[in-house]
Simulated assay, not measured.
Amino acid sequence: MNYYFTTTTNGNFEEIEAKVTSLLKDENFGVLTQIDMQQTLKNKLNVDFKKYKILGACNPPFAYKALQAENKIGTMLPCNIIVQEIAPNKIEVSAINPLVSMKAVKNKQLEGIANEVSTKLENVIKNINNEK
């Protein structure tokens, strides 16, 4: 089992990023953080890097349930989704698979939560190539 779900699509980077954000919203996730790795690496290391953003997504009801079950689970929140340009107008979108990451935490209460969140994030990835 992979630690991520992924798909590749054709399109403009910014449009695909907006679509990912919209699909996350459809699954009741909000984007809490955005890390622009291209800009960060340029500013900090003066290196050129491809378009690559990390979106930190959160579904508050599931986050709350997880925090009630395991008070250190915040070290694994939010759920990260990456949007990266792998070639001109060829964008890869990947999301963490919480089922895999939660296996490191020995807490049975988290299994159901991780299963539901995994399904939602996999839906986002599966729907990237659908018209919306």
Rank of each mutant, 00 (worst) to 15 (best):
108 K>H: 11
82 I>N: 02
80 N>K: 09
103 K>Q: 14
88 P>M: 03
109 Q>N: 15
72 K>R: 15
93 V>Y: 02
92 E>L: 05
90 K>C: 04
88 P>W: 04
100 V>N: 08
93 V>K: 02
76 M>E: 15
91 I>H: 02
70 E>L: 04
108 K>W: 07
106 K>T: 11
92 E>S: 13
91 I>Q: 01
77 L>Y: 10
101 S>K: 13
87 A>V: 04
70 E>F: 06
102 M>I: 13
101 S>I: 11
82 I>M: 02
75 T>F: 15
95 A>Q: 06
109 Q>R: 15
70 E>Q: 14
75 T>G: 14
76 M>P: 09
108 K>M: 11
78 P>Y: 13
68 Q>M: 14
67 L>H: 11
107 N>C: 09
75 T>Q: 14
96 I>F: 09
84 Q>P: 00
87 A>H: 05
67 L>P: 07
107 N>D: 13
81 I>Y: 07
108 K>P: 08
99 L>S: 14
67 L>T: 13
102 M>S: 14
77 L>H: 09
100 V>P: 01
96 I>Y: 11
99 L>W: 12
100 V>L: 06
78 P>V: 13
80 N>W: 08
81 I>H: 04
91 I>E: 02
82 I>V: 14
96 I>E: 07
95 A>L: 03
71 N>H: 12
109 Q>Y: 14
98 P>S: 02
91 I>Y: 04
72 K>G: 03
108 K>S: 14
101 S>E: 10
74 G>H: 13
75 T>D: 12
102 M>R: 10
73 I>N: 10
107 N>W: 05
94 S>G: 01
107 N>K: 14
108 K>Q: 14
84 Q>N: 01
103 K>V: 00
97 N>L: 00
78 P>M: 10
101 S>D: 08
100 V>G: 01
77 L>K: 07
79 C>K: 07
